[in-house]
Simulated assay, not measured.
Amino acid sequence: MRVHINQVCEGCIISKEVYSISHRPLIRKSTVLNQDLLQILRAFLIDEVEVEPFLNNGTAFKPAGASLVSRARSADNDSAAEIRQNTDFSVMYLQAVQAYKKLYLDWQSGALVDISKIRSLLIPAVENGLNQPDEIFKTYHYSKTDEYLYHHSVSVALLSAYLGKRLGFSHGDTIQLAMTGLLCDCGMTKLDQGFVSKKIALTDKEYKEIKQHPVYSYKMLKNIVSLKEAVKVGVLQHHERLDGSGYPLGVKTDQLHPFGKIAALADTYQAMISERPYRNRQSPFKVLEQLMQDEFGKFDLTALNELKKGLLKFSSGTNVRLSDGRKAEIVFVEDQYPTRPLIKVDETSEIVALKDHRHLFIDEII
Rank of each mutant, 00 (worst) to 15 (best):
S217H: 06
Y216C: 01
T174R: 13
Q176H: 10
D204I: 05
F169N: 05
F195Y: 15
L202I: 06
L227V: 04
S170K: 14
K232V: 01
T174F: 09
V235C: 04
H171D: 12
S197W: 15
V196H: 08
A201T: 09
V196T: 09
I175D: 01
K208I: 02
V233H: 02
F169H: 13
S217E: 01
G168D: 04
L163T: 08
K219C: 02
G187N: 11
F195I: 08
G234Q: 09
Q212I: 01
S197V: 09
F195D: 05
K219Q: 12
N223G: 00
V196Q: 07
P214Q: 06
G164W: 14
S170W: 13
I200F: 08
K205G: 00
K199H: 08
T189P: 02
L177W: 09
K222F: 05
S197A: 07
Q176I: 03
Y218G: 01
G234K: 10
Q212A: 02
E209V: 09
K190V: 04
D192W: 11
L177F: 06
K199T: 11
L177R: 11
V215A: 00
I210W: 12
V225S: 09
I210G: 00
V225Q: 07
K232A: 00
L202D: 00
K211M: 03
V235E: 02
G181D: 08
L183R: 13
D173P: 03
D173G: 03
N223P: 02
Y218V: 04
M220L: 12
D192Q: 09
E209H: 03
L167F: 13
C186D: 03
G187K: 15
T180W: 15
H213G: 01
A201E: 07
V235G: 01
M220H: 03
A178C: 07
I224K: 08
D173M: 13
I210Q: 02
K198A: 01
N223Q: 09
V235A: 06
V235R: 11
E209L: 11
K190S: 10
K232P: 01
I200T: 14
G181I: 13
T180F: 11
L221G: 00
L221M: 07
K198R: 15
E206T: 05
F169Y: 15
K228W: 04
E206M: 04
E229D: 07
G172A: 14
G172R: 15
Q176M: 12
L182Q: 07
L167H: 13
Q212R: 14
S226G: 03
E229C: 02
Q212N: 06
K190N: 11
G172M: 11
L183P: 03
L177Y: 06
D173K: 15
K219W: 05
